[in-house]
Amino acid sequence: MTTHARGEEKKERFDPHVDDESAMKPYSESLEYTDVTIEMVPIPGGKFLMGSPDSESGRRPDEGPRHEVRLDPFWMGKYEITWEQYEIWSSRLDQLHRELMGQEPNAADLVVDGISKPTEAYTDMSFGMGKGRHPAICMTQHAARTFCRWLSAKTGKYYRLPTEAEWEYAARAGSTTRYCFGDDAERLDQYGWFFDNADDGYREIGRLKPNAWGLHDMHGNVAEWVLDQYDQTAYSRSAPVENPLVIPTRLYPRVVRGGGWDSDPADLRSAARSFSRLEWKAEDPQIPQSIWYFTNAHAVGFRIVRPLVVPAEDQQAAKWERSEPIQTDP
């Protein structure tokens, strides 16, 4: 198993432990005891206009007012997190492989084994659309956050979900148009999977064109979790805003970005915003309902980021890792 796109040339080995933006390069994060990697792409720090202009076709009121945002540099997953990556955590496959190889646990293994894993799903959460290199879906934001905690502990690097601002900045890749490639939705099928071309299901990662910063499937395939609470008036701030985050203090609604395979073209625009709903648990038969799964979110997944400058632990707890109410299994 590997997350490299088929036919992609192997990258020069790069030590990603750097603290200088000029030294940032793409790298592959190897998941120990497996042959699975996660491809990371450097995103330069900078500023951009977040939201959409009043004249943009398909625009909704929550995309304004347009405002300047400044962001620090970070790496972002080249692709959405796939089932083959996600299940290493959710099914503890790395530790099972280690045990089969007869290897004693190292310090990282002892830490990751103490991080919560999802309870067993009541059904196949891919709903027959395929696993492997297909994007993982149907997880709650809590599950996606916990995957990032596990990955951070496993690798010794700080991974998390992107903020809503980081996501839009990366999706735009320097563009100011409806999509990363321009305004013409007729070209969308070259870059994204959506209702008109997805044939009723998600597709393997990386099969369509990337944006200018090398990120695939930012438009469509699956919508992607970010850290923020959804607030339709969140953009009404004094500009400029630096590294913004609307810290979640309630379970609903929370932001997802990018649109999915079941979305219309307007929902795949770089500025388009969507959010979680209680109805995403409608078919969960468990009592109480799971903190890990959204059984009706068949087009919701996530990708990860790694900030160049790692915040101090107290800053992580106060901002980047803060999420209320606390989620625990019964």
Rank of each mutant, 00 (worst) to 15 (best):
E12N: 00
D15N: 02
V18M: 06
E21A: 15
E21T: 04
S22L: 14
S22R: 15
M24N: 01
K25W: 00
Y27Q: 03
Y27V: 03
S28I: 01
E29I: 15
S30W: 08
L31P: 04
L31E: 07
D35N: 11
V36M: 10
T37W: 00
I38R: 06
E39N: 12
I43R: 00
P44W: 01
G45S: 05
G46R: 00
K47Q: 01
L49V: 00
M50H: 01
P53V: 07
P53H: 01
S57A: 09
G58V: 10
R60Y: 07
P61W: 08
E63Q: 10
P65N: 01
R66E: 12
H67Q: 12
E68T: 08
E68M: 04
V69I: 15
V69M: 03
L71I: 13
P73Y: 09
F74L: 04
F74H: 05
E80V: 14
I81F: 07
Y86G: 13
I88Q: 12
W89M: 12
S90P: 02
S90E: 12
S91N: 09
S91F: 12
R92M: 07
L93S: 10
L93D: 07
L96F: 07
H97V: 03
G102I: 11
Q103W: 11
A107G: 00
D109P: 00
D109C: 00
V112M: 02
D113N: 04
D113C: 00
G114K: 02
K117W: 01
E120V: 03
D124Q: 03
M125V: 10
S126C: 09
G130W: 09
G130D: 10
G132I: 05
T140Y: 02
T140V: 02
Q141G: 01
Q141E: 03
Q141T: 01
A143Q: 08
F147M: 14
R149Q: 12
S152R: 09
A153F: 02
K154A: 14
K157L: 15
Y159I: 10
L161I: 05
L161Y: 04
E164Y: 01
E166G: 02
A173L: 08
T176F: 02
R178E: 10
Y179K: 05
C180V: 00
F181Y: 14
L188S: 03
Q190W: 04
Q190F: 04
W193V: 02
F194I: 06
D196M: 05
N197C: 08
D200W: 03
E204Y: 00
P210M: 13
L215Y: 10
D217H: 04
M218A: 09
G220L: 11
W225D: 07
D231I: 06
S236I: 06
A239L: 03
V241L: 11
N243L: 12
P244N: 13
P244E: 13
P248E: 06
R250D: 13
R250Q: 14
L251G: 06
L251C: 02
R254N: 05
R254E: 06
G258Q: 13
W261Q: 10
W261L: 12
S263V: 08
P265G: 10
A266W: 07
L268K: 12
S270M: 13
F275Y: 15
S276T: 14
R277V: 11
L278W: 07
A282R: 09
D284C: 09
P285N: 11
Q286V: 11
P288E: 09
Q289V: 11
S290F: 08
Y293H: 06
N296M: 07
A299Y: 03
I304K: 06
R306M: 15
E313M: 14
E321F: 07
S323W: 04
P325R: 12
